[in-house]
């Protein structure tokens, strides 16, 4: 039950939904990020403080009088979530942290790969005991689909346009897993909303691991990718099955698990998405398609996925 601001009216909730990420949030129908967050919090439990940089997650969970967080949550600036998380942890430690409260950052690809990269690098360097989870929808969705350094090769966004000879993003996305590993982060993994049991196991490991942990999740966005909302989980699954998003796990720099796949053609993942449509309509872009196929093959070889 929620008591109205003025204390006059009492407002009863429609249900007693017992999720730490409450319904009524403002994410678009079928948002992959919303599935990720709900699943993450199911594993972290209530004894967690979440930090989020600016982005869709922050926006859809925190309108005035509409917070969907059932755990303590703080919004940083776009660029400094890891530094804020360090501050929260320092505060907890200064008080002795009697309940063993954990600090988790959940941030978008823009906030992580781009503008928050320096701050994240500092958090990794300091070996702060924080779990950082990046929900990667491969562009700046909240401001209208601008390309980020997580946007893959060949993807059309408003800043990587598709016109004439332009085929969208001209370079590959950054390898954030390799960047985290290069910092000596003791627990680094990728996870998918198409495999929630694996995600939960990894969130648990990331929480229990002393020192920093990093988990990268691909969270499809129907608005930015151009597909039907019902296909969100299906596309997350196809990204894994094609080899384009390998599910891997590293402990102290060593690869300790990689999800085996029976590879499906990359077209099965690309074709349902508008952001890749031009590659199938114009013969002069076959090189780009070929490069995407090669990327999948390279991943399969690199992590021995078959």
């Amino acid at each position: 039950m929620i008591v109205d601001r003025e204390g006059e009216k009492e407002m009863t909730m429609q249900t007693e939904v017992k999720e730490l990420h409450a319904p009524g949030h403002r994410a678009c129908p079928g948002c992959g990020c919303a599935i990720a967050v709900k699943s993450i919090l199911r594993e972290t439990g209530p004894n967690t403080i979440v930090v989020s940089p600016t982005g869709c997650l922050e926006t859809f969970t925190s309108p005035i009088r509409g917070s969907s967080w059932e755990v303590p949550w703080i919004h940083s600036l776009f660029e400094n979530a890891p530094a804020i998380a360090t501050g929260v942890l320092a505060g907890l430690n200064a008080k002795g942290n009697p309940d063993g409260t954990k600090v988790v950052v959940i941030g978008g690809d823009g906030g992580t790969y781009d503008i928050g990269m320096g701050s994240l690098s500092g958090m990794f360097e300091r070996k702060d005991d924080i779990l950082y989870i990046c929900y990667d929808n491969e562009a700046y969705m909240n401001t209208g689909i601008q390309g980020s350094s997580a946007t893959p090769l060949g993807v059309g966004t408003t800043t990587t346009p598709v016109t004439g000879n332009s085929f969208g993003k001209t370079v590959e996305k950054k390898d954030l897993v390799a960047i985290a590993l290069a910092h000596g982060v003791p627990y680094v993994a990728t996870a998918s909303i198409a495999n929630l049991a694996d995600l939960k196991k990894k969130v648990r490991k990331g929480m229990d691991n002393p020192g920093p942990a990093f988990i990268l999740m691909l969270t499809p966005c129907n608005v930015g990718w151009g597909y039907e909302p019902e296909e969100t989980v299906e596309l997350a699954r196809k990204a894994v099955e094609t080899g384009l998003f390998p599910i891997v796990e590293f402990e102290d720099g060593d690869l300790v698990s990689a999800l085996k796949i029976r590879p499906v053609p990359v077209e099965e993942y690309l074709k349902p998405q508008k952001r890749y449509q031009h590659l199938f309509k114009n013969e002069k872009f076959t090189d780009v398609l070929e490069a995407i196929r090669k990327k999948a093959e390279d991943n399969i070889k690199k992590f021995d996925l078959v």
Binding site: I2, R5, E6, M11, M13, Q14, T15, V17, A22, P23, G24, H25, R26, T61, S62, P63, I64, R65, G66, S67, S68, W69, E70, V71
Partner: peptide, 16 residues
């Protein structure tokens, strides 16, 4: 001021 208070899970009021 009460206006500055955000309650946990208040989104549940919103009929999406």
């Amino acid at each position: 001021l009460l206006g500055g208070v955000c309650k946990a899970g208040e989104s549940k009021r919103l009929e999406t």
